[in-house]
Design a protein around this nucleic acid. Structure first.
Lengths: 158, 158
DNA sequence: ATAGAATCTAGAGTTAACTCTAGGTCAAGC
DNA sequence: GCTTGACCTAGAGTTAACTCTAGATTCTAT
């Protein structure tokens, strides 16, 4: 069973342009061509495509993905390099997810900030008296609510 | 207390170029200037900068961040819009983190794939007999190990 | 007072990752 | 047999987010 570039594009929800671009960048050396020069993807190619899509989602630049594919094509002598490559990007992704968790926490505190302002009808309830400057005690209050067991995700809900 | 662009750049670990670029894009309308036209950041400005950095980390485009800052400068009439803006990006970030968790799971399975290949000295232990194609049973085996209580994070460790 | 460092603006240059155009080939349906 | 749509390559164009340059000004430390 083989697949045209359009069929693969549909399956992966990627444009054929993008697939050709990846090919140009060396990400698809495993893809066969028919007599007319058209790409014919095999079932096994989806194992590679899955890895490419995964690394893309992980934020790995196309050039580095190309390097990984090179390692794959070289054979068993590169098994260790491939392991290290994945371990490195696993670590980077873990770090990124930790950062995003902090970002999410921050968004939730700000949502609570606006929820309470909205309920008061004015943001100025959060200001230091006589200024336009946010009272640091407001954030401390939010943290106190969380420390007392409230879910940050719920505190901001209207 | 005020801060120069260089001091703010150091604190936020952003280049002064980038801060000026953000200013040009309308992200910093709240920043004062001294008599000579130089930017003077106030303590309260860090509340805005914190939001900008957070939205950047969340993957929000600069233009949209500019729109949010516009809302902030407009006053209490935009409180609801600001709440909705944050709620929308909270949802997007949650979705992204769920995708990244799948990506991380995939990286861990591939790490295990290479760990076992490495221990066998060859990737071919994962191939269907007489082919270069990966046996789907290999992934199934990994899933079985996870279903039996193994931690994906540990299965790939050398 | 003065040298070196930091800042300013306007605008050019860079990079990554697409995205599309032009001009041509090929395959399927009527 | 012919049209329509998918595919091909090479290469140009686009977009976002910086990043830097040039030329002028200002601040700081001796």
């Amino acid at each position: 069973m083989t697949y045209s570039i359009g069929q693969v594009a549909d399956k992966l929800d990627i444009s054929p342009y993008t697939l050709r671009y990846y090919d140009k960048e060396g990400l698809l050396p495993f893809v066969d061509r028919n007599a007319a020069g058209r790409r014919r993807f095999k079932d096994n190619d989806f194992n590679f495509l899955e890895v490419i899509v995964c690394l893309k989602e992980a934020g790995v630049p196309v050039k580095q993905i190309g390097h990984f594919i090179d390692l794959c094509m070289t054979g068993d002598s590169t098994l260790h390099d491939r392991y290290d490559f994945l371990a490195e990007h696993e670590a980077q992704l873990e770090a990124k997810m930790a950062r995003l968790q902090h970002t999410l926490d921050f968004l939730r505190w700000k949502k609570w900030y606006y929820k309470t302002a909205l309920q008061a009808g004015t943001e100025s309830i959060h200001y230091l008296p006589g200024t336009n400057h946010v009272d640091p005690a407001v954030h401390a209050e939010f943290n106190r609510l969380v420390a007392n067991g409230a879910q940050p995700k719920d505190l901001g809900a209207l």
